[in-house]
Design a protein around this nucleic acid. Structure first.
Length: 552
RNA sequence: GCGCUUGUAGCUCAACGGAUAGAGCAUCUGACUACGGAUCAGAAGGUUGGGGGUUCGAGUCCCUCCAAGCGCACCA
């Protein structure tokens, strides 16, 4: 029996109690919380239903628990129930129904843990969206790891997820990039507000090599335009390639430029004008965003007639909604959090619901250290640590795991000197090793004639076995929470616990009989459990976009 | 000055408002002639930044102070 099934059973009992009059009529929560008690001695599962519902029924938690507990105990799958502390109901399953989980998991395989919390939702997840003016740095790398994992987590709950990259190929930053390329090609130093570094030279050289005519012979303006067009395209390809090697592939690369060329910006503005949220002042066009909680109104089109940055965002958001996305999620770095209010105001101005149709996830910065000292980075000097640098130092799996395992609203410190010498302190290896072990145990078992032919779940009675089973049973709930809170790091923490439980079990319980002993039901049954652990570890690593190796 | 995020073990970080605040790394002590020792068992390490409040119950919610990062444009 899984905890989810237990929760459903408890809810059914409550409904029954209302039907037979032992409880008054009142609204029940859609879901009863069943979780693992921290202390193993408290049983397999615990529910705080009595504490949460006592108020609704005007009873003390204790009294409510005493009413409910006997009925839970009457369930076939339950062997023992007791009430503890302020009103926790601790539940112990009988061994056979607890052990059945092993088989359930193996039979479900890659589907084990899936949920339907977001079934039918069309979600657009925009992340990274780094400017094509240079390689992806650490911040972008973090969002690539977290965002891709989040996309997997959301899809695991039934959402139809589109990964999208907003490609900022319009505006001032791009002009600076083009000027930097031109300067480099001419052998001049990088402009004051421009970009430096080796990659600028490489791109500049590549642009000249692929050009059909001598760009440097052109007038500055034309030359700059030539560098812009070709340079952006090359940079874009390089970024895509880095992301691909990082295991992140976007479904849509959206070009900001296309919004301007297709007149989508004008359409978005006139739409807002129709809705009465736009006004003209000082020769500029403004969005009356204060009406929707912003601290000031925002200029959409500057008095020189050029669109402000937000103009593109207006059109882009509208475009996403017109493409049928119910939920638009955008991941931004903390250096852009000042942007949230106006984006939400914009969403409301279109008549949508901020926080629902548009959700902005802010992630904190990554601090790079070397031997404990902060590393100063400068785009202009080109001393930026890139995604490729990190991957080269530790590999894709270790990099993704390290970036995805902690909450993105806390700043992350990464010490380069530590990464480059010892990678073993990354818990990813602990988890991967556990998975590899499940695979090799299965291989060895097969050669020793241990197979799935027998299954007697009541035999899984060692403390490390009941512990492992209970842990494996938590994946569905964990996966759902991870999606609900948009926090993929919970998956990482969970599989680390699973790996720990698995290793402890392995140390105590043999799957393969000793050389002179026969194969018995216990061995077969344990093979099911071993394989179930493998499934959970594999599914968990999969949600993080990290490989689950057969051997290491 | 205003706003957002954060403050938990020596370090990096966990903990739907739930029971004795947990992992990994680092340190120390142990464990294979038994399915992979990248493992396991154990020790040590904490006034959850300080102070108030809300309630059956607070690391978590509210107020306040302190500290750190980031942001407050007709820049993008």
């Amino acid at each position: 029996m899984t905890p989810a099934e237990l929760a459903v059973a408890i809810r059914r009992i409550l409904v029954q109690m209302q039907a037979d009059g032992s409880l008054s009529a009142a609204e029940l929560p859609a879901e009863i919380v069943v979780e693992r008690p921290k202390n193993r001695e408290h049983g397999d599962w615990a529910t705080n239903a009595a504490m949460q519902l006592s108020g609704t029924f005007n009873l003390t938690p204790r009294a409510f628990a005493e009413l409910l507990a006997p009925r839970i105990e009457a369930l076939d799958e339950v062997s023992k129930v007791d009430i503890a502390g302020p009103g926790f109901i601790n539940i112990t399953l009988n061994l056979a129904s607890a052990g059945m989980l092993a088989r359930t998991i193996v039979e479900a395989g890659s589907a084990y843990g899936k949920g339907e919390a977001l079934l039918g939702l069309k979600m657009n997840l925009e992340f990274v969206s780094a400017n094509p003016t240079g390689p992806i740095h650490m911040g972008g790398t973090r969002w690539a790891a977290v965002g891709d994992s989040l996309a997997r987590v959301l899809a695991f709950q039934g959402a139809e997820v589109t990964r999208e990259y907003y490609f900022n190929d319009h505006g001032e930053q791009i002009d600076r990039f083009a000027r930097s390329l031109l300067a480099r090609a001419k052998g001049l130093p990088a402009p004051e507000d421009g970009y430096g570094g080796e990659y600028i030279e490489q791109i500049a050289n590549a642009v000249m090599a692929s050009a059909t005519k001598d760009i440097l012979a052109l007038e500055d303006e034309a030359a700059q335009e030539a560098f812009r067009a070709a340079g952006v395209e090359l940079m874009f390809q390089e970024i895509r390639e880095s992301l691909h090697e990082f295991g992140v592939d976007f479904d849509v690369y959206f070009h900001e430029n296309s919004l301007h060329e297709s007149k989508a910006v004008e359409r978005a503005i006139s739409r807002l004008r129709e809705l009465g949220h736009v006004f003209d002042e000082d020769g500029a066009i403004w969005l009356r965003s204060t009406e929707f909680g912003d601290d000031r109104d925002r200029v959409i089109v500057k008095s020189d007639g050029k669109p402000a940055y937000i103009a593109g965002d207006l059109a882009y958001y509208l475009d996403k909604r017109e493409r049928g996305f119910d939920r638009c999620l955008i991941m931004l770095g903390a250096d852009h959090h000042g942007y949230v209010q106006r984006m939400m105001a914009m969403c409301a101005a279109f008549g949508d619901e901020p926080g629902v149709n548009l959700e902005i996830l802010i992630g904190q910065m990554v601090n790079l250290l070397r031997d404990g000292e902060p590393v100063r980075m400068s785009k202009r000097a080109g001393t930026v640590v890139t995604m490729e640098d990190l991957v080269e130092a530790v590999g894709v799996d270790a990099a993704r795991y390290a970036l995805a395992r902690s909450s993105s609203n806390s700043q992350l410190d990464i010490d380069l000197s530590q990464l480059s010498k010892k990678t073993n302190d990354n818990p990813v290896f602990y988890v991967q090793y556990a998975h590899a072990r499940t695979q090799q145990v299965a291989v060895n078992a097969k050669s020793m004639k241990v197979d799935h032919s027998m299954f007697d779940p009541a035999l899984l009675n060692h403390p490390t076995e009941t512990d492992l089973l209970a842990k494996l049973g938590e994946l569905p709930r964990l996966a759902q929470q991870s999606a609900e809170f948009r926090e993929p790091h919970r998956i990482a923490r969970y599989i680390e616990e699973v790996a720990g439980s698995y290793h402890r079990w392995y140390d105590n319980c043999r799957v393969i009989p000793l050389a002179d002993k026969p194969v018995e039901a216990i061995h077969s049954t344990r093979l099911w459990l071993n394989d179930a652990a493998g499934v959970v570890l594999r599914n968990g690593l999969g949600l993080l976009g990290v490989s689950a190796p057969e051997r290491m």
